[in-house]
Amino acid sequence: MTKQFTSVWTREPRQPKTTGLRLEQIVAAAVELLDAEGLDALSMRKLGAKLGAGATSIYWYVANKDELLELTLDEIWGLVETPDPAEASWREVVTTYGYNLRATLLAHPWAAILSGQLPSMGPNAFRLSDRLRRTLTQAGFTGVDVYLAAGTVTSYVLGQVVPEITLAKVYNDDDYDIDYLMQMMEPYRDEYPEMLDEYRKAIPADLSSGRAVAFDFGLLCVMDGLESRLRAGPAQHPSPPSTQPSRQVRREASGA
Rank of each mutant, 00 (worst) to 15 (best):
M1G: 15
K3P: 05
K3A: 15
S7A: 07
W9E: 04
W9Q: 05
T10N: 14
E12Q: 12
R14T: 12
G20M: 10
L23I: 12
I26C: 00
V27N: 01
V27G: 04
A30R: 02
A36N: 08
A36M: 06
E37T: 09
G38M: 11
D40P: 01
R45T: 15
K46E: 08
L47E: 00
L47I: 08
A55N: 08
T56Q: 10
N64T: 10
K65R: 15
E67V: 07
L73R: 02
E75A: 15
E75N: 14
I76K: 02
I76C: 01
G78A: 07
G78E: 00
L79S: 06
T82C: 03
P83T: 10
P83V: 08
P85G: 02
A86F: 05
A86E: 13
E87W: 00
A88K: 03
E92W: 06
T96C: 12
G98S: 12
G98M: 04
Y99Q: 07
T104L: 10
A111F: 03
A111K: 01
A112P: 00
I113C: 01
G116F: 07
G116Q: 11
S120Y: 02
G122S: 10
P123Q: 05
N124E: 14
R127G: 05
S129N: 09
D130E: 14
R131H: 02
R133N: 05
R134L: 08
T135E: 02
Q138I: 04
G140M: 06
V144K: 06
V144I: 15
V146M: 05
L148I: 14
A150W: 00
G151Q: 07
G151M: 06
S155G: 15
V162C: 05
I165H: 00
K169N: 13
Y171V: 10
Y171G: 06
N172C: 09
N172W: 03
Y176N: 01
I178K: 12
D179E: 15
L181D: 10
L181E: 10
L181T: 12
P187K: 07
Y188F: 15
E191A: 15
Y192C: 10
P193G: 12
P193A: 13
M195L: 15
M195Q: 14
Y199H: 11
K201R: 15
I203H: 04
S208Y: 00
R211P: 01
F215W: 05
G218M: 10
V222R: 01
D224S: 13
L226Q: 03
S228D: 10
R229Q: 11
R231Y: 04
A232V: 01
A235S: 12
P240G: 09
S242G: 11
Q244T: 14
Q244K: 14
R247A: 14
A253M: 10
S254M: 13
S254A: 15
